[in-house]
Write a protein that binds this DNA or RNA. Structure first.
Length: 709
DNA sequence: TCACCTGCCCGC
DNA sequence: CGGGCAGGTGAA
């Protein structure tokens, strides 16, 4: 009798059992003939296992028998290997592939009517999937119509055996409570910290004053929660921002009280830090979006900075957003929430509007003292202005540059490539929207083929809602070369660039032209940039995206926040139509007001986040099939489907993009407030049923799509 | 009567 | 996903 693969696996499992029991030599007693004959644990002989496979229709737990030898190690939360999948040999079930999973619970009984297969191996004794983390993952999976196993894969980092062997540092005593520092600049700032130190759970939307103070203020909030004997967590959009809060917190506490969880650290180091948090040795985490799941013990404060930044949405299924995850966590763990940024998202404004969070903003007078002066210049001035035609710049912009360069570095914000143009009124530039569903209009080739990007309805007789003009224009893009020419216009001044591939961290406090794409602006040493020139107005506002205005304002504010305050001569020039709402909000430095007005508009037009949306995309038959099968909530409204445009070949393929050469449709499903959970559940159920029956290559479901035109 | 195929459904 | 198994089908 030859030793087939199944016999080899069986022997392997027995060896694993022997190893798990801590014996190095052969088993002393008669070896059980198969696993089925091995002794079971006496107490709680059933392990409920979350199988580590993202198949949506398998989004449930499976029971396995716990062999006696694994009894001590097979605790809830540990990683295990189990046999999974069909397999019958000679009438006995013993096949199936070995896959990884987590023990979720030990039980006395099982509901499964058949014979339980045994656990094959306990991979690690580290209880990584704690009850609190499991509960969070389950809520996130429900919220996003995703599979629990997919969310757990985001929340629990891959195992690094060496990191597990090393002990975590001894827990430190809580630091002394910090003084309010910059929070004294906000009328309700000290009160927020007081509530934190009393162990309460205040929730605030924080409109941070311009300038560099925010990182220190965020660190003080974290340290206050630590001082109150609770944990704290801050999620930042990128490693640079996280490093600034890390430095501020280290200066405040001496370090050791927190860990930095970013992609910069290697996988093993990252897991080592994560373990220190999971074990309760460290109770404060500063990190990028994956840190949103960090299993901080006794979480007292969950903070997020600049929640409008697209980096806060995870790109892996089911693509949860850090703000939403932290909001869920805060409710489950009774933690305080701090949603901070120079801008305010519509989602944050909604949390204030519903009373879930309170506003935390400085007085008007304080804002005026700390913000630079903002000037607007319209595009058309460029052609008229003779003096500055060399650099194709309006006089105002030219003067601001020249004056700024006499006093320090000047920031020039230029757009990134790759924004798809959208259509707007030729006269007043109000974005063109569908009369029926308010989706964005797009032209397929000629303008006669005008149609809605959401519902597909044609709009041959379009007239501007705002001014009545029948003429459209494609919003044009491109100011990059202007920045390049600036260097030639100021030959005596060094030009430094910062962008996607090469991000400059800081620049010295000396005259220089600093050309940067949004989000890559170097932090100036000293009092800040003397001036900033924001050249990407039309590119940002012209993006075919519901959030274009909000996003333009967010990027402008982030750049302008690096400029010296008005009393020190700081000036910002923005090339954009001064009557547009985001431009006016920038001039007045009123991001909260902008978000409130956007929220009111979205409510009246039935846009998210007031209504909840889901995008269903995939091959046309899959999209139609899923929508037909889903038992959607009664008030659900299906927009589309429409054919998705073929993505730019240059752009890296993202989740939700059709594969090369394939035609995909996308439909949007919209439900009124309060039906978001029902919508997610309906789509998840329908998708699971169809995947199980393999009726088609599955359609993708994305909750809260952000690029919906 | 048997070998093979296709579709369906399940996995502990 | 991957494999069993039921029920159908066709050739000897």
């Amino acid at each position: 009798m030859g030793e087939g693969p199944e016999q080899a696996a069986e022997v392997g499992e027995q060896l694993a059992l022997v190893r798990a029991a801590g014996r190095r030599s052969a088993a002393p007693r008669a070896r059980p003939r198969t696993w089925r004959d091995a002794e079971r644990a006496e107490r709680l002989p059933v392990a409920r296992v979350l199988v580590d496979k993202g198949l949506v229709h398998l989004d449930r737990l499976f029971d396995y028998a716990v062999p006696a030898a694994m009894d001590a190690e097979a605790r809830p939360g540990v990683r295990v290997r189990v046999r999974f999948g069909a397999g019958q040999r000679e009438g006995r079930r013993e096949g199936g592939r070995l896959i990884n999973g987590f023990i979720v619970e030990r039980r006395e009984e099982t509901d499964f009517p058949g014979v339980l297969a045994p656990l094959a191996q306990v991979l690690s004794t580290e209880p990584v999937l704690t009850p609190a983390l499991l509960r969070l993952c389950r809520s996130v999976a429900d919220r996003y119509a995703g599979a629990l196993a997919d969310v757990v894969a985001l929340a629990v980092p891959p195992r690094m055996a060496r990191a597990e062997r090393r002990p975590s540092p001894e827990p430190q005593d809580p630091p002394a409570p910090p003084d309010p520092g910059g929070w004294a600049r906000y009328p309700h700032g000290p009160g927020f910290l007081d509530a934190l130190s009393r162990g309460e759970a205040p929730r605030a939307v924080w409109t941070a004053l311009p300038g560099p103070g925010w990182a220190d203020e965020l660190a003080r909030a974290l340290a206050t929660s630590l001082a109150a004997g609770r944990g704290a967590l801050a999620v930042l959009p990128d490693g640079r921002a996280a490093a600034r809060v890390d430095a501020a917190l280290t200066a405040l506490t001496g370090g050791g009280a927190h860990v930095l969880l970013t992609a910069d650290a290697g996988r093993e180091e990252r897991y080592r830090r994560w373990l220190a948090v999971s074990r309760g040795a460290v109770r404060c985490v500063v990190g990028t979006r994956a840190a949103m799941f960090a299993p901080v013990h006794g979480l007292g404060l969950a903070a997020i900075w600049d929640d409008g930044d697209a980096a806060h949405r995870d790109e892996h299924a089911p693509q949860p957003h850090a703000r939403e995850v932290l909001v869920l966590r805060a409710a489950q763990e009774r933690a305080a929430v701090l949603l901070g940024g120079h801008g305010v998202t519509v989602e944050a404004a909604q949390l204030v509007e519903t009373g879930w969070a309170g506003p935390l903003a400085a007085a008007r007078e304080t804002v005026r003292e700390t913000a630079p002066v903002i000037r607007t210049v319209v595009e058309d001035d460029q052609r008229r202005d003779e003096a500055a035609r060399y650099a194709r710049l309006p006089t105002v912009a030219w003067q601001a540059l020249r004056d700024g360069l006499a006093h320090g570095p000047v920031l020039v914000q230029v757009p990134r490539r790759g924004y798809a143009p959208r259509l707007a009124c030729d006269r007043c530039r109000t974005p063109a929207r569908c009369a029926d569903c308010h989706g964005p209009l797009a032209a397929e080739g000629a303008l006669e083929l005008l149609g809605c990007g959401w519902c597909g309805r044609r709009a041959p007789e379009w007239h501007c809602d705002a001014c009545g003009s029948p003429r459209l224009r494609a919003v044009v893009i491109g100011a990059r070369r202007t920045a390049e020419e600036l260097g030639r216009a100021f030959p005596a001044v060094p030009v430094r660039t910062s962008g996607r591939d090469h991000v400059l961290d800081t620049v010295p406090d000396a005259p220089a032209l600093v050309v940067s794409t949004p989000g890559a602006e170097p932090v100036p040493a000293g009092p800040g940039y003397a001036a900033a020139l924001l050249l990407d107005g039309w590119a940002l506002l012209g993006r075919p995206d519901l959030r274009a205005g909000e996003e333009a304002l967010r990027r402008w504010l982030n750049a302008a926040a690096l400029v010296r305050p008005q009393p020190q001569g700081g000036t910002v020039v923005v090339l954009a139509e001064p009557t547009l709402r985001p431009v006016q909000s920038l001039v007045r430095w009123d991001p909260a007001g902008h978000a409130r007005r956007e929220l009111a508009d979205r409510a009246s037009l039935g846009f998210p986040p007031v209504s909840r949306m889901a995008a269903v995309s995939g091959p046309p038959d899959a999209v139609a099939g899923l929508l037909g099968a889903a038992r959607l909530p009664p008030d659900a409204e299906v927009l589309g489907p429409v054919r998705l445009p073929v993505p730019d070949p240059g752009r890296p393929r993202r989740t939700g993009d059709p594969p090369a050469g394939e035609q995909w449709d996308r439909a949007l499903v919209r439900v009124p407030p309060g039906q978001g959970a029902a919508l997610a559940a309906a789509l998840k159920t329908a998708r699971a049923a169809r995947l199980a029956r393999r009726e088609s290559a599955g359609a993708r479901v994305l909750i809260d799509p952000s690029d919906i035109g």
